[in-house]
């Protein structure tokens, strides 16, 4: 029983990370109908930047905030330089560009920061075991912080005019322009925001899985699965899907098939769910047109 609780708790903790990355994916998907396969690598790059700042003597939270801002800028730049010229290209070609970007960042990470696995400090410590010792202080802090970030994002989209304009630009760019919304700028903002969210996720997961250039590739896959499980056009669904995937993954790894095959089994389950609900748990079925 204790073991089960422990597994569920750490499942929620990793689910928080998947939820963040899944949200980043969904945000870009909604705005551009592309899945950013490089989202994970961008987050890894941000995490390396954060580690470099910390090693240079910047206090953890200072490095955190600075990295988030830099990542935002990185997202804006990537959209401007790589995505905008491809706006009218066939979808599969854009996928090619995303893959290229993934390879470039991955290789640059290894070249600049090295391929060795690095430990990453956690900002969360506790003098006593928390919640009966089922969860580590980092797991609590990381989950809490992720929930705060996700809530802020939700409040931003729900209640601010800028958030509304970004949603409008994603849903109906033509009408948004006719309302005076600068749609291209909104796309850039969306990319920036997604990169910032990814960076926060990377910094939060690095103390657990350690940092190397391939840190996020597995996480991206789980996040992608979570996003599809929830419904690729539903931000809330993506977040819930991320948590579900995290818990499932941990339980399967611990009790059913062992860590070797847990990825396979988790994916199989998701495919099974999708067969029952092809648009995801919270997604809308796409209308077919004749």
């Amino acid at each position: 029983m204790n073991g089960l609780l422990h597994q569920i708790a750490s499942g929620i903790a990793s689910g928080a990370i998947y939820a963040s990355v899944a949200l980043a994916l969904v945000m870009i998907y909604q705005a551009t109908h592309h899945v950013n396969f490089a989202q994970g690598e961008m987050a890894t790059l941000s995490t390396f930047v954060a580690l470099t700042l910390i090693h240079a003597g910047v206090p953890f939270w200072g490095a955190f905030v600075l990295t988030i801002l830099l990542s935002f800028a990185l997202g804006v730049v990537v959209e401007r330089i790589l995505m905008r010229p491809m706006m009218n290209a066939p979808v599969l070609s854009s996928v090619g560009v995303f893959i290229g970007l993934l390879l470039v960042i991955n290789a640059l990470d290894g070249w600049i920061f090295g391929f060795t696995i690095k430990s990453f400090p956690s900002p969360f410590h506790a003098a006593h075991p928390l919640l009966g010792g089922y969860v580590s202080p980092h797991e609590i802090g990381e989950t809490g912080l992720t929930v705060v970030v996700l809530t802020l994002v939700w409040l931003f989209f729900r209640y601010t005019t800028l958030g509304l304009a970004m949603r409008a630009a994603a849903y109906n760019p033509v009408s948004a322009r006719l309302c005076g919304v600068r749609v291209n700028r909104m796309l850039g903002l969306g990319w920036g925001l997604a990169a910032a969210i990814g960076a926060a996720a990377g910094i939060m997961v690095a103390p657990v899985v350690f940092l190397d250039p391939n840190m996020m590739s597995g996480i991206l896959l789980y996040a992608f699965a979570g996003a599809l499980l929830g419904g690729i056009d539903s931000p809330l669904g993506a977040v819930i899907g991320g948590f579900v995937v995290g818990v499932l993954e941990n339980l399967f790894g611990a009790y059913v098939v062992g860590t070797e095959l847990k990825l396979t089994v988790a994916l199989m389950i998701i495919v099974a769910v999708l067969l029952a609900r092809p648009a995801g748990l919270f997604g809308r079925a796409v209308q077919s047109r004749v």
Partner: peptide, 20 residues
């Protein structure tokens, strides 16, 4: 040092030049 970066850059350049 970073062959992956060159590979990725070639790929991106290729997609820009010949999207189809």
């Amino acid at each position: 040092a970073a062959p992956g970066a060159i590979y990725g850059a070639i790929l991106i350049g290729f997609m820009f030049a010949l999207p189809r």
